[in-house]
Design a protein around this nucleic acid. Structure first.
Lengths: 239, 239
DNA sequence: TAAGGTGATTTGATAGTACGATTCGGGAGA
DNA sequence: TCTCCCGAATCGTACTATCAAATCACCTTA
């Protein structure tokens, strides 16, 4: 990610410290501290604080300084915040939450897609599903991940719900995190993969209920996989 | 909502213009335009643009100015963005999307709450459900809405998922919007209300599946109600 | 001891200036 | 006539200096 401008670097640096717990809730820091820590002018420090304030990570008040807000107040859906949490000690919790969110949303998105998707989108969905299964059979990890990401991006976008569609970005980060975490199983070809074809077919034929059910089994499996890894129970994708 | 600072007013003013479609995607405006439009200094205008940029509503580049990004790029989960969309011509679309999101998430939250909720929370949930049904029977609209909001806030918070919990804020706005939209039906006492007791009971007894099912029927009804109103089909809460 | 005021500290806001990057247009060469 | 390169205009970027406003802590006073 290309950090634009000097203030972007300050935002990123502070954001990481916040997400990493280095700066805990309730702590206050003066604008001057920010200036010194990053070697920037007051203007840049102020802009950085403004941005962090808009993400609800901090609140700035005269005479008291910049106080860190509790994590429950943060804009947890902000992609940048998600990224910070994903590269911090709280990484596991963020992964679990994302997996749960995805498990909740994607079945609904699939059902909506079955209602609203146009012919081109239905075709595209089917193509991605086929590419996915082909990559799985061939053991092509790179192609697998990209086809998986593309499939879910199209599916979420086809829901006609902008908020659903926007989850594609974080879903992709979940997928790459999963890849990095377990280096992908040797056997890519598992039941969950074939479900993608079921989803594509159900969407193509307008069967919303079936699309939701098939999508549900995919994301539930992914969620359970993430949870089992985080619990150290190992044996991902066993079922 | 208390707009803090001069720059906050500029952010809000620009945000409304953007959400309202007054400034369309691709349009560019110079920093100087912002200064003149709101009668503020360069610094304030810059801070406002920075905040809008962090919400992904605009992107600022040298030599070209501040360009409006397409709505699909915006941080649609930012509470402020939601509020702007909720007070703009696109209001109906935002309401529909929120209702769909809620319908997807709350069953999952209920299931998680059944697993994780402590005794105090289970009691609190039951209390709110009882207050809700009492208010419904008494025809107390104010008490009804506040009990409803409190119930869903506790439920989402009890899921142990911070991202779910954060949807409580927007859910409440959905509830008040619904109230304003149809002035609440005369008969508050309907099947969906009684389901709240089912949810509370299922959570209290750790029956995740049942909790999800009961919560699902509540939010599905609410979603269909919103959709029927927006389609002009009238007759809300009929079923 | 309690209430009120006053001062010091920190953010809020503005003005002015220098710098850098990017785009547009003109001119030279093929 | 077309292409490529270079310069200039333009706009955002960044810094400094300065004043205003708000708030908390301390001190005075009843």
């Amino acid at each position: 990610m290309k950090l634009q401008g000097l203030h972007g670097q300050v935002v990123d640096g502070l954001g990481r410290s916040l997400a990493g717990g280095e700066l805990r809730a309730g702590e206050v820091l003066r604008l001057e501290d920010v200036q010194e820590r990053f070697g920037v002018s007051r203007t840049v420090a102020r802009e950085a604080v403004r941005v962090l304030e808009s993400k609800r990570l901090v609140s700035s008040r005269p005479r008291v300084g910049v106080t860190v807000r509790p994590m429950s107040a943060w804009n947890l859906y902000d992609p940048q915040v998600i990224r910070w949490r994903l590269t911090s000690p709280g990484r596991e919790g963020q992964l679990r939450e994302l997996a749960e969110l995805r498990a909740a949303v994607e079945p609904a998105a699939a059902a909506l897609a079955a209602q609203h998707a146009g012919p081109a989108v239905r075709q595209e969905l089917m193509d991605h599903a086929r590419a996915l299964t082909a990559a799985a059979r061939a053991g092509d990890k790179e192609g697998f991940v990209s086809a998986d990401a593309a499939f879910h991006r199209v599916l979420l976008g086809a829901s006609g719900n902008g908020m659903f569609a926007q989850l594609a970005e974080v879903t992709e980060e979940l997928l790459v995190a999963r890849r990095d975490l377990l280096l992908l199983p040797e056997r890519l070809d598992n039941p969950a993969v074939r479900r993608h074809l079921d989803v594509a077919a159900a969407v193509a034929e307008g069967r919303g209920e079936d699309a939701a059910r098939a999508a549900g089994s995919i994301v539930a499996a992914a969620r359970d996989e993430v949870e089992s890894i985080l619990d150290g129970t190992a044996c991902p994708l066993a079922t």
